[in-house]
């Protein structure tokens, strides 16, 4: 098992390196430059290019970037907050996005699993239909519509929660964005749990457990859920990454200075260093999550665990 994990970690590092290189090449291909502006002359643009070292060949810049990155230096912003250290910009905003995303994931997982399990246990009853309808609406109504509805009714009309994000009461003012963000994950997880659980409950080993006389709830937790979780975790991984790296629309609506908004602006402004940093944070989270999912697989599924130990 240890050998397997070590091997996976090394491969992940290599993958990250490749992603970074690809990102660098993509940035180079991006249309426009950070300095396209009505008020700048060509001569000034050339000066800026030279000043930031963008006139050097791609590979030189790439290795310089890698070298600086190991020192924790992600370069400076060219367009969003000129000359700001990107590492600082990303660090400040990532924390908030992780907070909102984490809350949303928690809500999404709890409600998603509950809805899914309930629907599967009462398969083909009205509860099942209701749960299905909720999850279908959850994915077909965009999160920004839910967000504005919540703002209007919960915050504006009922005055229960603040409308905008507020640094004075970060937790309270992040509840609404987290709920709005969690709608789609709830629906996805519920839907997936339901169909997975129905599959598991129809399988022969559950029939065996049942005939052995294991109590209902014990059977559901110990046997059905455990086997349901394996594929569910596969879906949850990418959802988690997407939530943690911020949603630009939700951040826009609630005025949250998060990383999702930063990345969109960076792409629009062609701010290379910021775009690469944001994208790399995303990649890093994604790769780490995938690594965890793969390892968790082994822990939850005895068959895979044994197979890996045999390696």
């Amino acid at each position: 098992m240890k050998k397997y994990i070590l091997q996976r970690v090394l491969i992940s590092l290599a993958t990250l390196f490749v992603i970074l290189l690809v990102l660098f090449i993509l940035m180079d291909l991006m249309p426009g430059t950070p300095f396209n502006d009505e008020k700048l002359t060509q001569a000034q643009k050339d000066i800026l290019y030279a000043k930031y070292g963008l006139d050097k060949p791609l590979l030189t810049r790439f290795f310089l970037y890698c070298k600086n990155m190991l020192k924790g230096d992600l370069g400076v912003s060219y367009a969003i907050n000129k000359n700001f250290a990107v590492s600082g910009m990303v660090k400040d905003r990532l924390g908030i996005s992780i907070a909102v995303g984490g809350m949303a994931m928690l809500i999404g997982t709890v409600f998603g699993l509950l809805l899914g399990i309930l629907a599967a246990l009462k398969h083909n009853s009205w509860i099942d239909n209701l749960c299905s309808a909720i999850s279908v609406f959850g994915v077909s109504i965009p999160s920004y519509v839910c967000a504005l509805l919540l703002c209007y009714f919960v915050a504006y009309r009922l005055n229960w929660l603040p409308i905008l994000y507020n640094t004075d009461q970060p937790f309270i003012s992040l509840i609404l964005p987290a709920i709005a963000l969690s709608v789609s994950p709830t629906a996805n997880i519920a839907r997936f749990t339901r169909s997975e659980m129905i599959d598991v409950m129809n399988s022969d080993y559950i029939l065996l457990v049942e005939s052995k006389g294991v109590k209902d709830w014990k059977m559901i937790i110990g046997h059905v859920l455990r086997n349901t979780m394996i594929p569910v975790i596969t879906v949850m991984g990418p959802i988690l990454v997407n939530l943690l790296t911020g949603s630009s629309v939700i951040e826009k609506i609630f005025g949250i200075p998060g990383i999702g908004r930063l990345m969109i602006t960076a792409i629009q402004e062609n701010d290379y260093n910021v775009t690469i940093a944001c994208a790399f944070v995303y990649s890093l989270m994604y790769i780490i999550t995938m690594l965890f999912v793969d390892i968790l697989y082994g822990v939850i599924d005895p068959r895979i665990r044994i197979a890996k130990e045999g390696d």
Binding site: L16, L26, I264, Y282, S283, Y286, I287
Partner: peptide, 14 residues
């Protein structure tokens, strides 16, 4: 993983 590790937005912008 490489394909998915790059945010979709960056790819589609290009």
């Amino acid at each position: 993983e490489i394909l998915n590790g790059i945010p979709t937005l960056v790819i589609v912008t290009l």
